[in-house]
Simulated assay, not measured.
Amino acid sequence: MKLRFTKMQGAGNDFVVLDATRAPLELSPAQFRFIADRRFGIGADQILIVGPSPAEGIDFRYRIVNADGSEVEQCGNGARCFARFVKDAGLTDKLRIRVQTLSGVIEPELHSDGRVTVDMGPPVLDLARVPFHPDGLSAPRQVGSAELWSLPVADRLIEAAVVSMGNPHAVLPITQFGVEDVDQAPVAQFGPLIEHHPAFPRRVNVGFLQIVSRGTVRLRVFERGTGETLACGTGACGAVVAGIRLGWLDERVDVETRGGQLTIEWRGPGHSVFLTGPAVTVFEGEIDIPAQGA
């Protein structure tokens, strides 16, 4: 089966974008894993499937599939690349579009400097909706207007702030690991353990947060179903929301990731989180993918 694709990246978080606006595209998890494979396929953190409008007032819908073949609710860097793709492909002439995702409607807006801003909607702070089930955990430590939960992991307790940006995030201050630089954070060790912690029934993205100033942070994210990525848009949003609620950050924060800089703005409860960053087309091509179930 031959498949046309576009390879894109947003702050180093890379995607394969597939156009399904003219005809449905049904691929198996094994086929998605093949596409995402960096040796035998194209290589990507996630695969984005662009679909037609599902309802009046909505311009497009899109699906997000992780490198392991699992489908997820939201992706901030992917949303920016999605917006750049539909505009460059001539699928819309709008600079602000409404897009249906599994977690709701988002509104990316393209800027003349090449960056894209996405209205990610308000963060989800209700633990049951994250979802986060703290049964059996000790009471959290209150800091500012947020809670730091102690998670038993590898014979120690790891403190995490919990938030959802349409997908679940555990935000870990790196100072608890005895390091001041996020480059020294034990991401490979604790990322997968916390991703699969039983308190997170749908797994969780794990952010390792370094506070540089009230307007700047550094962040590494271990994404569920993918592993550590060079950037994570929803992870940046979740980390800034957590930092603001903990009293550490101002309303506008530059997030330095290994793949580039993202800017997050949040005015507090009841308000949307706005994510701004780059979206770049890398190349286009065609690939033969194995039959279903291969």
Rank of each mutant, 00 (worst) to 15 (best):
F15R: 11
K2C: 06
S103T: 13
L18N: 02
P186C: 01
D119M: 07
Q46W: 06
E284V: 00
V280T: 14
A231Q: 08
R4Q: 14
D19N: 07
L219V: 05
A67N: 12
E107L: 10
T92C: 09
P108H: 09
H196W: 05
G215T: 10
P52K: 12
L125C: 00
R80D: 06
T101P: 12
F82H: 08
R224E: 11
V143L: 05
L249R: 02
S28N: 04
Q210D: 04
F85L: 06
D93F: 02
I211L: 15
V241M: 00
R61K: 05
G43Q: 10
V204W: 06
T229R: 09
V143W: 02
F40C: 10
A160T: 14
W266R: 02
P173M: 08
G260V: 05
F85I: 06
E284S: 14
E251F: 01
P278S: 13
A128Y: 03
S28W: 11
A79W: 10
L48W: 13
P290Y: 05
F283V: 08
V240M: 01
E256T: 12
E195D: 08
M120H: 08
P201S: 05
V143S: 03
G247T: 04
F34S: 07
D126L: 01
Q74I: 10
R115K: 15
A146P: 11
R252P: 08
S272D: 04
A55V: 04
L3M: 03
T276A: 07
I287T: 09
A23N: 14
G51C: 09
V217I: 15
Q142D: 12
V99K: 01
I211H: 11
A161H: 14
V130P: 00
R220Q: 08
A67V: 06
N205C: 03
E159K: 12
I244D: 05
R245D: 04
D68N: 10
G10C: 06
R4A: 13
T175S: 14
A146N: 04
V50Y: 13
